[in-house]
Design a protein around this nucleic acid. Sequence first.
RNA 1: CGGGGUGUAGCGCAGCUCGGUUAGCGCAUCUGCUUUGGGAGCAGAGGGUCGCAGGUUCGAAUCCUGCCACCCCGACCA
Length: 615
Amino acid sequence: MAPRATPTKRQRAGPRSPKSLAESLPADVGLPRYPRLSSTPRSTRLRWSQAFIPTLRDDPADAGAVSHRLLVRAGYIRQLMAGAYSMLPLGFRVREKIMRIIREEIEAIGGQELLLPALHPRDLWEQTGRAEAMADILYTLSDGRGQDLVLGPTHEEIFTTIAKELTSYKQLPQLWYQIQTKFRDEPRPKSGLLRVREFTMKDSYSFDVDAAGLDEQFDNHHRAYTRIFERMGMPALPVQASSGAMGGSESIEFIVQSPAGEDDIAHCPAGDYTANLERATSRLAEVQDDPGPDKPEMFPTPGVRTIEDLVAFEGGAPADRQLKTLVLVLDDKPTLVMLRGDHDLQEQKLRDGIGALEVRPAQPEEIKELMGAGAGSLGAVGVDQLPILADEALRGRRNMVTGANRDDHHLRGVDVERDIAVTRWLDLRAVAAGEPCPVCGEPLEVFRGIEVGHIFKQGTKYSEALGATVQDADGESVNLVMGAYGIGVERNLAACVEANHDDLGIVWPISVAPYEVVITVVTMDDEGAVDAAEALYLGLIDAGVDVLIDDRAERAGVKFADAELIGIPYRITVGPKGLADGIVEVTDRRSLQSENVPVDEVVATVVDRVVTARV
RNA sequence: CGGGGUGUAGCGCAGCUCGGUUAGCGCAUCUGCUUUGGGAGCAGAGGGUCGCAGGUUCGAAUCCUGCCACCCCGACCA
């Protein structure tokens, strides 16, 4: 992975060092002056020849996701171990710009920045029950005194602890945030920056005296997040989501469509419904059942083990007339779960619906012992010793077919409500692509996406557990009503690449590009080209543009390819040919369109374009 | 956690089945010359605990045992 960045002969020799070059410029370069625009202040004068930008000619062998491949190849990141990445200078700059956008937008809705420790006493996590609930991802350690510690995977506990100093409703609302490192022992880190074990997160927490206040802060975040992702050049869809272990009443996640993502999203093309499959619903066609017999009838079904077997079996039934019976162990409690034969269980719905932490299928031996038959012949008819959870789609269904709890036998004529002692009705089935939108009936599409942000209404879960209260206007002590709002910084960086690249490399939106402009000096051996390029460089720096000058003693082709790979939005190509006619070339990275611009106008032209493109 | 795969120079790989000189190739790097507007050519050079540990053997990158790491699929995942 050797960097191509090497000092040129001239620089090693000395006379072309940045300082002496600047001094050597004619006094009347005559470039217009612009007010300094907001820009990353550091390293503005670092030249490519000295920059650590270790680009690779070949793709890394073990990178699957596009963003992973490009970020490694273009010299933005390097892996230290599974799920832990170093940010190289280019990656660092992009990360800084993303954090700046996030800060601006959270400050704009009243956020106050703080910084909390990453190291927490385990006690605090015991108090909210999450030491257990999140045990599998929690990094735990102990110090020299034997105190148990955890590395924070999120910071509700700590923010709430600080919020205990709030005493009056008059101090509310409060909106606190930090940008800080999180640690999560992901069982399977993957896809480069998309799923890691150590990462930076912007997490904000809102504190209000009532639900109305929370609603307002939640909506504020919804708007702020929309702006953040727009500014980053990523179309992100707000999606109804499961709150999972975070708890709370409502949550919306923001999803960038990408095959590298891990979430499946049901989306109505008409635009009026978008939901994570973990909680998506659809409108199902009504099914008309024949009355059927007065009571279930057993019939032999030799060799029938699956729904499909029974569809094909003489005297069987189509899948939507079958009852699928699953034996699951929910937090050590065996439970029957019933779905229509052609429906799949959405496990997160089950978790959310009954508040279970651990869900696993029962072992074959357990099933045999509980039900008296193997998994291919199960049914809920006559079962009274186990809880029975039934999917809503089975309500009112009659004359169904299901297993008889006797191997190689099934029951027909089952009336769900008459014959089965359903403990609870729940929405448990996974929506499939093509099913009708619950709002308008259009067929839903299902796609994969990356979760780039998630906002939660948490209510009083944490304030209750930790005793964070204020007095309201009536002098009553009430629990703080909380919301929590997260954005993963590096994951956003990767998602941005997923959404902005082509065959040649990354195509950064100007708002987060490590440099806004690269000046490519075609030949370092042509003094005229070098001098002109350096003059443009200084002019753009003066104008507050983030500009990189490619002063390497490389061939033009190498410089062009690298500029495209690392994805700088504008390239100014300076070479003797053009200069003979008084022009340089300005190339737009996204369209790859070039145009000739007179040398003495190019700073103004490019500054204008950059400023317009900044958001 | 289950299944599969891979560890040899900065990166990408061959060599291993069938043990035997100083362990190779491409890219990258360094030196020189030539070249120079789309990943140059020639000549020369540097760079390796062959993932780790143990074992078998006169001799191990190669065979055996154990361990570790990384990748992919699944499970899992605020």
